[in-house]
């Protein structure tokens, strides 16, 4: 680890990223441009999140990485070991023990606290991109609060599917001002974005954008009066821990097509099982 500066990035780069983060926190939901650095991993691995984590980590932090809810995917393991190696920080899989959590595609089920920072990996930060590819125009739309186009996207969804079919990266409005892409979390997680005690930071590496939600920020999911937002999930209990309130993945168990629903947040599920909860599929 002596080959690197603490957390890989040099101090000047970290200061530049911290300035972008502070600006993001001062203007919740606003996309702050930053000079993204080459990281020793491909963009698809969340280099935006990694750079934000590098800029906020201190030697006393305990770091956790979630990839689609799990701590043990290749992606999560390699980002965790990257910071073990370059920053020498403690790592954990327990949500409650972590002070900085980098995530892709999920918000932990366990409510976060004021002592925690949640860092999201963001592939496409611009929620208006889908209908308006010109960046000069989307920037103007944000600055003038011209967000009708966002509802055109939802309108198209309903006209095609009969309901709002967008189930990931569901657009939100922050403190009644900026429309924001919450990264590809399931819309089930959207309500957790709002009024969260922890700091939420969003990093897009390839697109060179950082945005942020300070603690207790109001975040509202866009919808229509006659098609209200619903934080839906599979209508089942967790097969392992019997949880009724957690986001579930459907997993195939055998060649006969046997399936079961289990918590996508593996730490949450394990903690519940350790506390004695048992689902119908648990051995």
């Amino acid at each position: 680890m002596t080959d690197y500066n603490f957390a890989y990035l040099d101090e000047q780069t970290k200061r530049m990223i911290r300035r972008a983060i502070l600006k993001g926190l001062a203007i919740p939901g606003y996309q702050v441009p930053f000079a993204s650095r080459e990281m020793p991993m491909p963009y698809g691995w969340g280099t935006g999140g990694v750079q934000v984590s590098a800029a906020v980590l201190t030697p006393d932090d305990t770091f956790k990485v979630i990839d689609q809810g799990a701590d043990d995917t290749t992606n999560a393991v390699s980002i965790r070991s990257f910071f073990e190696r370059t920053a020498g920080v403690e790592t954990t899989t327990a949500t409650t023990e972590a002070s900085v959590i980098q995530t892709r595609h999920r918000i932990p089920e366990e409510p976060l606290t004021e002592d925690q920072i949640l860092v999201y990996q963001v592939p496409i930060p611009e929620p208006l991109r889908f209908l308006e590819p010109r960046e000069s125009e989307t920037r103007k739309m944000h600055s003038l609060e011209e967000y009708g186009l966002m509802h055109v996207k939802l309108y198209e969804d309903i006209s095609r599917h009969g309901h709002i079919a967008t189930s990931y990266a569901y657009p939100v409005k922050v403190e009644g001002r900026y429309v924001m892409d919450p990264s590809p979390i399931p819309k089930f997680d959207n309500p957790k974005l709002s009024d969260m005690a922890a700091i939420q930071l969003f990093g897009a590496g390839r697109e060179q954008r950082i945005y942020a939600l300070p603690p207790y920020t109001q975040v509202v999911s866009l919808d229509f009066e006659d098609h209200p937002f619903e934080a839906s999930k599979a209508d089942h209990l967790c097969g392992l821990c019997d949880a009724t309130d957690s986001y579930l993945d459907e997993v195939i168990m055998d060649d006969q097509g046997g399936r079961m629903f289990v918590c996508s947040d593996t730490d949450y599920c394990e903690a519940r099982r350790a506390a004695g909860h048992k689902g119908k599929d648990a051995a």
Binding site: H151, E156, R160, E225
Partner: peptide, 19 residues
Amino acid sequence: VSAGGNVGERLMAVGERHY
């Protein structure tokens, strides 16, 4: 965007929120 979405855009732009 569909014909309906094209016509509806200006309505949504001025705040109509009933699909």
